[in-house]
């Protein structure tokens, strides 16, 4: 089962499911998992609206759940997602797939599947854009001032 973390993780999960169906001919249940309520920085930031959580009807009990997100950075979003999964059921295993791993982990979390390892400085920002959400597929590393394109 693929569970994307909104917004872009959910989009990526849908794309992965499509690609798996094309290559393997297998239909993987796909959903989205909002982690806003589980964030540890909730009360340090201005309020954010919750995004949809859609769990496939079969539930996550005994499934192998692959979490999908766009960028893996501190690992705090993934920690929040693990807590959210704990409230939804008991999967057989949880794995993590990310498009970009930019390093700088603050928690003992690693990805099982990585699209690209992207060494970055802490001061830089990594911005993933996807056609479905932003109208274009690109990954940008941005300083405060300039922005340079990495992978079109």
């Amino acid at each position: 089962m693929l569970l994307g973390i909104p917004r872009r993780g959910a989009t990526l999960a849908a794309r992965l499911a499509e690609a798996i169906a094309e290559v393997e001919g297998v239909h993987v249940p796909t959903g989205s998992l909002d982690v806003t309520m589980y964030r540890d920085d909730l009360r340090l930031q201005p309020i954010r609206a919750a995004a949809p959580t859609q769990i496939p009807p079969a539930g996550i009990d005994d499934a192998v759940v692959v979490l999908v997100d766009d960028v893996l950075f501190h690992g705090r979003t993934v920690r929040a997602a693990l807590d959210a999964i704990g409230d939804l059921g008991r999967p057989r295993a949880v794995r993590l797939a990310v498009l970009i791993d930019r390093g700088h982990r603050e928690l003992p979390i690693r990805a099982d599947h990585v699209g690209k390892n992207l060494p970055t400085a802490l001061s830089e920002r990594v911005q993933v854009s996807l056609v479905e959400d932003d109208g274009v597929d690109e990954v940008r590393i941005a300083d405060a001032a300039d922005a340079s394109e990495v992978t079109p």
Partner: peptide, 23 residues
């Protein structure tokens, strides 16, 4: 609209087995 949208997400929690969010 933001409150109503978030309410729709909260509504979904009502159908869960564990009806609890740590927010």
């Amino acid at each position: 609209l933001t409150i109503l949208e978030t309410a729709a997400q909260m509504h979904e929690v009502q159908h869960r087995e564990v009806k609890k969010l740590p927010a």
